[in-house]
Simulated assay, not measured.
Amino acid sequence: MILVQCQGLSKNYGSKKALNNINLTLEAGAPIALVGPNGAGKTTLFSLLCGYLSPSEGRISLLGEAPNSPKLLGKVAALPQDATLDPNLTIASQLALFARLQGMNAKLAAEEALRVLSLVDLVDIAQQKPPSLSHGMGKRVAIAQALIGSPTLVLLDEPTAGLDPANAKKVRELVKTLSPTTTFMISSHNLDELEKLCDQVLYLDKGELSQSVSMHANTDSDYLTLTMQHCDSEKLLQEVAKLNGVINVSTKQSNSFVIQLAPNEDKIAEQSAIDHYQFEMKLLSLFNHHHWQYKMLMKGRTLEETLFS
C-alpha cells in the first residue's frame, strides 16, 4: 500500500527555499526515519504532509488523497515536537474530545481515551491534569493522542526528545508493537534510536532529499561493525587487514571498527552466509589469541556510518 507520494514538492518562505523538488514514495510497513541537520526542512515536510502548510510547487498524496481531505480523518495523525496539553482539562476528557472530533459518540470516545492511554501504560492518570505529570508522562499522553482511531500513518516529530532512558524505551517498544498495523514516520536526531526502530531512512539536507537508504539493503551485507571492550587498536587494524577476504578495515571512533569484506557476487546466498560465518570464526580466534575482549559484532554498518561515510 502506498502511503505517501510527493512529486516535485517545494516550499518557499520568501526567497528561502525550505524544500526543493522532493520526490518520494513511501509504502506501508516498518517505521521510516527522517533525519537531517537543523534547518534541513524536516519540520516543513511534516507540516506539508499534515496539511498545515500548502506547497509552493508540486503535489502531495496521502493514501491517494490530498493532505486536507476529510477522507483522511482518523487515518493520518501527527505528534508535533512541542505538542502541549490543556492544563485545565483532565487527560481523559482531552483525549475523549479529540475522539469526538473524529466522529465518535460520547461513549465510544470515552472508551477510546482509555484504550490509547492503556497503550502508553498511563490509564491510572486518566483523571489527572497535565500540570501534575512528569515530562515523560506528558510526552506519552501526547503520543496516545496521536493514536486515537488507530490511524494508518502516524508522523512523530522528536518523540523521545528530553525523555529519560526508561520513558524513551517505552516509546520505542510501543512503536515496535504497533508497527504491524500502523506505519510510523519518525523525525529525530537520535541515530542510535532510529537504527533500532526503522528500516528506510530519508536524509534531508538544505531542503533536498540527498539520500534514501535501507538498513537491511544487500549492499551492506559485505560490512561488519565491531566494537571492542579491550584491544590494541593499531595491532587490531594490522591483524584484521591480513585476514583473507578483507578489503579494508578502519576505525571511526575509539574501539569501534568497520570491516569491509570482498563481495560474494557470484555465490548463492547460502554459500555467502557460510563464508561470512567462517570469517567471523577467524575473527573470534584472533581475539582469543591476543586476549582481546569484544563488545559487539554486527552485520552491516551503523546508520551514522551508512549516511556519513
Rank of each mutant, 00 (worst) to 15 (best):
L53W: 06
F184K: 08
A28R: 11
L117S: 07
Q253I: 02
N167C: 06
S214V: 11
P131K: 03
P130G: 12
G14Q: 10
S309K: 07
F287A: 00
P165H: 03
T302G: 12
N218Q: 11
A262M: 13
E173M: 05
I247G: 04
A40S: 15
P159C: 04
D275I: 10
G14A: 12
D121V: 05
K71A: 13
M1S: 14
G74K: 07
G58D: 08
E239G: 03
G103C: 12
Y277R: 10
M185G: 04
L97A: 04
E27Q: 10
L226H: 08
L303H: 05
G162Y: 01
N218H: 11
K206E: 15
Q7K: 15
V246C: 03
L224F: 12
L236F: 11
N38S: 15
R301E: 10
L191K: 07
D199A: 05
V154C: 02
K71N: 10
V123Y: 06
K235E: 15
L133S: 01
V76H: 00
P151S: 05
K71W: 04
V201E: 09
L89P: 00
N167K: 06
E234F: 08
K299S: 10
Q260I: 07
T251V: 02
S187V: 15
P159M: 06
E173V: 01
K242H: 13
N218D: 14
G51Y: 04
A28F: 06
A273P: 02
A109E: 01
N88K: 12
A273Y: 06
S250G: 03
T44E: 12
V123A: 11
L226C: 06
P131I: 03
V213G: 04
E304G: 02
L19A: 06
H289L: 14
M281G: 01
A166T: 08
L297D: 11
S56P: 13
P131E: 03
K170Y: 08
V116M: 08
L73S: 13
Q5G: 04
P87Q: 07
D86S: 08
L79Q: 04
S214K: 11
V171L: 03
G136Q: 02
K252F: 10
L237W: 02
V213E: 08
D82F: 11
T227Q: 13
P67Q: 02
A96G: 00
P180R: 01
F287E: 09
C50D: 01
F279N: 00
E173N: 12
Q211T: 11
L63V: 04
L34F: 06
K139P: 01
N23P: 03
L48F: 01
A166R: 09
S285T: 07
L202W: 05
